[in-house]
């Protein structure tokens, strides 16, 4: 079975994670590193994808600064989203030629990872046609947003594990006005540790992508 590198970074600012992703993306393109998954949570940040409508940021910029929320433009697909502590973020840096040259399949696979994690907690989450991400009823539990160049991926998925849902009040998630966010812990009525969610996500990722994730640190060229 194909081995991939699984790197847990803990809590990382968005900019820092983006810098790491870009380096990994370039190295993966040159074949210098294996397929790698970054697992982390972000400090509070609102990101604008390529199709972002700035009107979907509801909060006053001064208020965001006061709250310590960063505002960042990202090259991933999609509209506006929020990341914050208690949300599990996976950034797979994969050469999709090793699986399938299909962005649709890849998004399906990322959604599948999140559906399996939710299911392992006894939560029935699913897809909503036309609205990528995963949903528990009409509430959004997880998001996807990816970037592909030369079939090498960046960005990925964000699963709401145990985060303060107030963060989503700053924005219109994905530009969908009726979309309210939920989390595994809200649905279960108990706290869920990010570590627990991550280990289940690693297992789900292994199953969906048919790989053996090996935990390790960042490749030397990136860590420096």
């Amino acid at each position: 079975m194909k081995r991939i590198l699984w790197v847990s970074l803990g809590r990382v600012r968005y900019h820092k994670a983006l810098e790491i992703q870009r380096k990994l993306h370039s190295l993966r393109g040159k074949g210098e590193i294996p397929d790698t998954v970054l697992s982390l949570e972000h400090e509070p940040v609102i990101t604008l994808g390529r199709s972002a409508d700035p009107r979907h940021i509801l909060a006053d910029p001064a208020y965001l600064v006061a709250k310590g929320v960063d505002l960042v433009e990202a090259e991933r697909g999609g509209d506006v989203t929020y990341h914050g502590p208690g949300q599990l973020v996976l950034y797979p840096i994969l050469d999709l030629r090793g699986w399938k040259r299909s962005v649709k399949w890849y998004i399906w696979a990322l959604e599948e990872v999140m559906i399996r994690v939710a299911s392992s907690f006894g939560i029935a989450a699913g897809r909503l046609p036309g609205y990528p991400g995963i949903w528990a009823g009409d509430r959004k539990l997880g998001s996807v947003g990816i970037y592909v160049r030369s079939w090498i991926t960046m960005h990925g998925l964000a699963l709401n594990v145990d985060l303060d849902p107030d963060g989503f009040e700053f924005i219109v998630p994905c530009g969908i006005h009726w979309a309210k966010a939920t989390s595994l812990s809200s649905l279960l009525g108990r706290p869920v540790g990010l570590g627990e969610a991550e280990s289940r996500a690693r297992e789900a990722f292994a199953g969906v992508f048919g790989v053996h994730p090996v935990e390790g640190g960042l490749p030397e060229a990136v860590a420096a």
Binding site: G77, I146, Y147
Partner: peptide, 16 residues
Amino acid sequence: EAVAEVEAEKATFVIE
């Protein structure tokens, strides 16, 4: 060289 970006679903795809 990357010359354009297109989007499908929630994916940005770079055209070289």
